[in-house]
Computed example of a mutant assay.
Amino acid sequence: MEKNGKEDLIIIRIQKSRKENWKRICSEKQISLTSLIIHSVENRILNDERRKVMAFIEKQDNIFIKIETNINQIARIVNGQKFISEEALKNFLDKLSEIEKLKREQNMIFSKIYSMLAR
């Protein structure tokens, strides 16, 4: 059957209590019952999970923006004073290396997330 762009119709029989449970899950996740069934059967990420992932990515990006801002502030102070102690420089470089490592890990995680979202 083809109606309004839909390719086919599948009728399944389930207990009324199970249907109500599925509808409750859909309501909580703010997704359609069709989406729940299709994504579950095809082992794809659900739309609500996709929204959570995107929110996580935005939050991570904001955290790194704050860190980069702090780095720029430190650089501005050092440039104004024209001096930084060796210990402070070592500490700063250690933190910078740690941030670089975290950013690489984050990018690997994001690549995996994007591949999951594309399915």
Rank of each mutant, 00 (worst) to 15 (best):
I67N: 01
A88P: 01
I71E: 11
I113Q: 04
I57D: 00
K23T: 04
Y114H: 14
K95R: 07
G5I: 06
E105N: 04
D94G: 03
S85A: 04
E42V: 10
A55S: 11
R119W: 01
E105Y: 12
Q106M: 12
G5Q: 00
I57Y: 02
Q81C: 05
N43Y: 08
R76T: 10
E100P: 04
I74G: 01
I71N: 00
Q73F: 06
S85E: 02
S115I: 06
L33D: 00
L89E: 02
E20G: 13
L36P: 00
E105K: 07
T34C: 13
A75E: 12
I67S: 06
L46F: 03
Q73D: 03
R24I: 01
I109M: 12
N4H: 08
K23Y: 08
K23S: 13
N91V: 03
R13E: 05
I37L: 15
K6W: 11
R13D: 07
E87L: 07
I31C: 03
S115K: 15
H39M: 09
H39D: 02
S111K: 07
S32C: 06
I37C: 11
D61R: 15
N70C: 14
R24D: 13
V78Y: 01
W22M: 15
I109Q: 07
R104V: 13
E2P: 01
I77L: 14
M54G: 08
N21E: 10
E42H: 11
M108F: 10
V41Y: 10
V41P: 01
S35W: 02
R50T: 12
I109P: 02
L9G: 10
L89P: 06
D94W: 05
A118P: 01
S17L: 11
F64M: 05
A75N: 07
K23H: 07
I71P: 00
L89Y: 01
I38E: 06
D61K: 15
D94K: 05
I11E: 08
E87T: 15
A88Y: 03
F110A: 01
Q81V: 09
I65A: 11
E68I: 10
V41E: 01
L46N: 07
S17G: 04
Q106P: 04
I109V: 04
R13N: 14
I74C: 05
L33T: 09
S27I: 08
E68S: 11
I11N: 08
E86A: 12
I99T: 15
W22D: 08
K66P: 02
F56H: 10
H39F: 04
Q30E: 14
L89M: 12
G80C: 08
L46W: 03
A118E: 14
L36N: 01
E2I: 13
R104W: 06
N70H: 07
M108Y: 09
E28I: 09
I74Y: 03
S35T: 11
R76E: 15
I67P: 00
N72W: 08
K29F: 06
R119V: 12
W22Q: 08
S27L: 14
A118G: 05
E68D: 14
R24W: 09
A88T: 03
I109L: 13
S27G: 11
K29R: 15
Q30G: 14
E98Y: 02
K29M: 12
V78E: 03
Q81R: 15
R104D: 13
M108G: 02
A75Y: 02
Q106S: 12
K59D: 10
F110S: 00
G80T: 11
V53P: 00
L117G: 05
S35Q: 07
F56S: 08
F92E: 00
S40W: 02
M108H: 02
I67F: 04
